[in-house]
Computed example of a mutant assay.
Amino acid sequence: MTDVDAHAPLPRSLTRPPVELELIIPAFNERERLPATVAAALGFLARRPWSSAVVVVDNNSVDGTPDCVDRFASSAMGRSVGFHVIGCGDRGKGAAVRRGIETSTARFIGFADADNATPIETLDPVMVLLRAGHGAVIASRHAPGAHLAVEQPRLRRGGGALFRALAHLTLPDIADTQCGFKFFPGPLAREIVRDCRVDGFAFDVELLAHVVRAGHDVVEVPVEWTDQEGSTFSARRDGLRSMTDLLRLSLAR
């Protein structure tokens, strides 16, 4: 039996047509929140001069998530913005985003949460910074100038503070590693994601750590962020795993 090279390029049949910007939206059981987010992204991108596409990565949803965005796929013909739905059999946000990046051929690529908590208009300054040559451009709720329009519940805020403290062991110069809105030059993202192993919510920290270790910078863009109900993050299911992943990443520095 011949060993498969894990770093070999994917077959062309598994990749999407090249565009300047590709937006990945990982989705696990997001039937209620996803349609509005996709509609907002498609509407915004249609008014921008960049060639672009929106890619929903369904992460083994059991609530019919792919079906709720079928209407966007069926109306894709003749629209200036591409729309794709792909699957990811491995569970976890990190696994879903990694799948989206690996199958992309875009010049710039990034991901946003399905809840649309970060305004899609943030892409305007993001694209300016990406074209200027920065290694990663990320939305930040804690950079100077950021504003929390609607805060998370107190328990979530406490968990977030602990997460940030542990994340700073690996990335001491980044104020907010977890705001779900991050963009990269496509070639860089595809290169570094090959060495990412975290499938869960600490994936963002691992990805940014690889950017920094590769000698690139990370720019934080302050945003007005709004907490949205219906998060699929479970403190019991995901919290301990995320903390363990963060500690492992800090030891790998």
Rank of each mutant, 00 (worst) to 15 (best):
V4S: 04
D5P: 12
H7M: 08
P9S: 12
L10G: 12
R12N: 06
L14S: 11
L14E: 14
T15E: 03
T15V: 15
R16S: 06
R16N: 02
R16F: 06
L21C: 05
L23R: 07
I25S: 00
I25R: 02
P26G: 13
A27C: 14
A27Q: 02
F28D: 00
N29A: 05
E30M: 13
A36F: 07
V38F: 01
V38N: 00
L42M: 14
R48Y: 06
R48A: 10
W50M: 13
S51R: 15
V54C: 03
S61T: 01
V62I: 11
V62L: 11
D67I: 07
V69F: 00
D70I: 05
F72T: 01
A73K: 04
S75K: 05
A76Y: 02
R79P: 03
I86P: 00
D90K: 15
R98Q: 15
G100W: 11
T103E: 12
T105A: 08
A106N: 06
I109A: 08
D115M: 02
A117L: 02
V128I: 11
R131E: 15
S140D: 03
S140Y: 12
R141K: 05
P144R: 14
G145H: 12
L148W: 11
E151T: 14
R156P: 03
R157M: 13
G158S: 06
G159I: 07
F163P: 01
F163L: 06
R164E: 00
L169T: 01
P172N: 11
D173H: 14
I174F: 01
I174H: 01
G180S: 08
G180A: 14
F181C: 08
G186A: 10
L188N: 00
L188E: 02
R190E: 06
R190A: 10
E191Q: 13
I192D: 11
V193F: 08
C196E: 12
R197W: 10
V198W: 09
F203Q: 11
V205L: 08
L207G: 03
L207A: 13
H210E: 07
V211Y: 03
R213N: 09
A214D: 14
G215C: 11
G215Y: 01
V218R: 05
V221D: 05
E224S: 12
D227I: 00
E229S: 11
G230Y: 04
R236K: 15
R236I: 09
R237F: 06
L246Q: 12
L249C: 08
S250E: 09
